[in-house]
Nucleic acid binder design. Sequence first.
RNA 1: GCGAUCGUAGCUCAGUUGGUUAGAGCGCCGGUUUGUGGUACCGGAGGUCGGGGGUUCGAGACCCCUCGAUCGCCCCA
Length: 431
Amino acid sequence: MAKGNTPKAIRGTQDIFGPDAEAFAFVVETFERVRKLYRFRRVEMPVFEKTEVFSRAIGETTDVVSKEMYSFEDRGGESLTLRPEFTAGIARAYISNGWQQHAPLKVATHGALFRYERPQKGRYRQFHQIDAEIIGAAEPQADVELLAMADQMIRELGIEGVTLHLNTLGDGDSREAWRAALVDYFGAVKGELSEDSQERLEKNPLRILDSKDPRDRKFVADAPKIDAFLSDGAKAFFDAVTSGLDAAGVKWTRAESLVRGLDYYRHTAFEFIPDEGSAAANALGSQSTILGGGRYDGLMESLGGAPTPAVGWAAGIERLAMLVGEVSQRQPEVAIIPLGEAAEHRATELAAEFRNAQLVVDLGFRGNMKKRMQRANADGARFAIILGDDELAKGRAAVKELSSGEQVEWQLDGVTQRLLSVLTGEASFRG
RNA sequence: GCGAUCGUAGCUCAGUUGGUUAGAGCGCCGGUUUGUGGUACCGGAGGUCGGGGGUUCGAGACCCCUCGAUCGCCCCA
């Protein structure tokens, strides 16, 4: 433990190491592998943008913009903000780089995001997301493909007991009509709602629908449903999405109360949520959504771009990492144990040869034979190759199989080839 | 931003109603074994008890402040 006057990490940041770091890397690697199957192109985005990119895209009144952004003036007096999400920055890049020429454009990225929130398990001030977007596609097939990718990735991460909760917010007109009806409905019983929801009535009436407060919940069941306000086009769109998901084999459930917090969403809205009582739900506590997103057909215009349909999702890497469990490491095929200066030199040559042959090699920097054997064993090496003056003089090496303790001598000439054929099972260790 | 619980070795924790030099297991280092790991036995290092202030003859225990983590709300990934 640090003592005295030493610096501490900033609240809500993490130093990720060991199994947690391996799980984190596994999530990113799996995402990278799966996004290539769907031909999403990798993009790298700035970590900060002009503040207006977020305030205009996300909405001034949202909590994210009004109280959670890390904003600051740079030395030129410009207001900049550490990105609290990916979508707004990607939309800005799409407009400022003329990426319309690539439409429909499928992009994927991952990295750090920043929100000034009260930290909790699975919720940090610097957190990390994977993100996928399809920009310039109004077709419901885009929603289907995007969701199919999310579903496959979650499965390939080995996460079970998670269900896609799906809703539609309708097109702009549908959404407005529904919103107005909700304001009427909840406004009539305003005095009986929770304090939070009385405030939501002004700021974000849709959010009352997923309130956890029992005072609100008794009214939610009979609240106006979006289905009653959907235009024919919006309904047809949602039907196309759901039938596409069925065709793609993606299991989903309708969640009529599922809404999105940010202003730019239209049509499809979704979250992957652990089933109640599942191991995943227990692991995550109240921070339960592991992947969420939707269609944001209105976003480009709010940034001054041409109307551009788009759909996307993001998922918290930390939350996913909590669900993947222990990620098994590839253990060393061989640990090389040199004794003496001449042997150190030869060992370095051997290690290079082995690694060029794609073998995992453990070569310690220090220690006597006992220490190095201990280390080889602790790392789970399959073989130890012992190189001392005696062996070098004979042009041979002692090779020990750690599981059995059996030890034989091999010629150093052709040792890489011999080791490879032993590892593939083509040759016997004893020769 | 609101409410609550909790901070004792690297880790997981124990520390009676306030009472001497603050303990255990695991891990780490060393030895039994100077060129042979796992097991066993022996030994060792490592703590201003999150930080600051207060009460008291005396505080790891009590009080206040502060920092942090955790749980719920809010928000959201």
